[in-house]
């Protein structure tokens, strides 16, 4: 009966550097969740947008943020295209550079 609420979910593509891979992301799925589901070693901790460990630089494409990044990322980082992968859904195919642990201060 509740199948009426279910719908087919299209996918979008995220190209991830430095992994050098492309992953499929279902509509409504977050970037980090999709990457972890597909076995990538993406640095992360809280998964709710509060720690900043999963940050990445959006090189191309558009995302829809699910939480205000301004409490975790600096204005400079936001201007430079940094996003929080755990709170990002895709509006188009994207290309991102994952910030590795050794790069974090």
């Amino acid at each position: 009966m509740l199948n009426v609420f279910k719908k087919v979910v299209p996918t979008q593509i995220a190209k991830l550097e430095p992994f050098g891979v492309e992953i499929a992301i279902e509509k409504g799925e977050r970037l980090l969740s999709a990457a972890l589901r597909q076995g990538l070693d993406w640095p992360h901790r809280c998964k709710v947008g509060s720690c900043g460990t999963c940050k990445a630089v959006l090189i191309s494409g558009e995302i829809k943020s699910q939480l205000d990044f301004a409490y975790v990322l600096t204005d400079k980082e936001i201007d430079e295209g940094y996003i929080l992968a755990c709170q990002s859904m895709l509006k188009s195919d994207i290309s991102v550079r994952v910030v590795q642990r050794k790069e974090m201060k």
């Binding site: 809280c46 709710v48 947008g49 509060s50 720690c51 939480l67 409490y71 975790v72």
Partner: peptide, 10 residues
């Protein structure tokens, strides 16, 4: 809502 996500979970 803010305190729970940004404070409690962290």
């Amino acid at each position: 809502t803010y305190a729970h996500v940004y404070n409690h979970h962290l």
